[in-house]
């Protein structure tokens, strides 16, 4: 269980994390979602006692991370930046970490086996690919067999097989009763992995709900209808209790499915030119939610052209 309350971090005049409060429960995967620069990594660094909060607090199982006698046995973390010396081998990297928290040395080979790096345990990590580096980072996180696992952008640089592996691993860790907290800027990835979602944008919490609620609320679908008799069709569908929005000669219909719309229109002998079920993706929902909070947005070309005129 991770408890974040009133957490704030400012750098000079810039507010990176702005009065953030939420909890991460055990036994499920909680996704921490936000665009780059939203404050995810800053929050995670404060969680690990690396950065000092300007205000507020973050505790793990009731106490600050830095107050744990052996933090690696309580919280396992994969940090976003590769916190490795390129000249050291994977095994040596895990060996010193194990020594620092008095974790038995045999655990080093266990986690190397677990993440699939046993064959390259003696190789200097500078020669590792991004994906191998991520796997080593996950090995570090699991070294102390911790009840709380924090992974910052774990699928970065992983191939599809690796992505699926992380997803399965996260679900399994949660099934074992552990607290699993994963940050990502990819909604699609979170939709498949997380049970619960905390969305952050510009340092503020935009949503804190179950994945199911998030989908129900944000992934709206509608039936797109095109007809030469579009006024009549709109009236007909409204009469049947549907919500109809005319958009550029199209009708966006909610409250009736495509079959019902087709049958109603057919019964009246009206023409239909198009009848499509349109599902807005979670990615879209996430984009809409965070649109105003993206720090580095690319401006559309037209806007740039207009500005230069």
């Amino acid at each position: 269980m991770i408890t974040v309350s009133g957490l704030t971090k400012t750098y000079g005049g810039t507010v990176a994390v702005d009065d953030v409060s939420f909890t991460v429960a055990d036994g499920r995967v909680t996704g921490f979602l936000g665009p780059n620069g939203a404050g995810k990594s800053t929050t995670m660094r404060m969680l690990l006692g690396l950065d000092r909060p300007t205000a507020g607090s973050v505790t793990v199982n009731g106490r600050r991370y830095q107050d744990s006698p052996a933090p690696l046995r309580e919280v396992g973390a994969l940090l976003e930046a590769r916190a490795l010396h390129p000249g050291r081998s994977a095994r040596d990297h895990l060996r010193w970490l194990a020594a620092s928290n008095r974790i038995r040395t045999s655990r080093v080979d266990e986690v190397l086996e677990l993440v699939g790096l046993a064959a390259v345990a003696g190789t200097r990590v500078g020669a590792f690919s991004l994906g191998m580096g991520q796997r080593l980072g996950i090995a570090v996180a699991l070294l102390g067999d911790p009840p709380v696992v924090v992974l910052d952008e774990p699928v970065n640089g992983l191939d599809p097989e690796g992505i699926r592996w992380v997803r399965t691993l996260a679900r399994q860790l949660a099934a074992e009763g552990r607290t699993v907290f994963i940050s990502s800027h990819l909604m699609s990835e979170m939709a498949l992995t997380a049970d619960h979602l905390v969305v952050i944008g510009r340092g503020r919490i935009l949503a804190d709900c179950s994945m199911r609620d998030f989908i129900a609320e944000h992934a709206a679908s509608y039936v797109l209808v095109r007809s030469p008799q579009h006024g009549q069709v709109a009236d007909l569908l409204r009469g049947a209790g549907a919500e109809v929005t005319p958009v550029d000669g199209e009708l966006h219909v909610q409250g009736l499915d495509a079959a019902a719309v087709g049958e109603l229109v057919g019964d009246k002998g009206l023409y239909l030119h198009e009848l499509t079920l349109v599902r807005s993706s979670l990615e879209d929902a996430f984009m809409t939610l965070t649109a105003s909070s993206v720090e580095y947005a690319a401006r559309p070309r037209t806007e740039l052209a207009g500005a230069s005129r």
């Binding site: 036994g27 309580e74 620092s100 099934a175 074992e176 009763g177």
Partner: peptide, 21 residues
């Protein structure tokens, strides 16, 4: 990987030694 995702309770301190390293 177990198919069921039944939650078990895990003592958060089960791994933590009594004395600080």
């Amino acid at each position: 990987v177990t198919a069921t995702s039944s939650t078990v309770t895990l003592d958060p301190r089960r791994n933590v030694p009594g004395t600080r390293p």
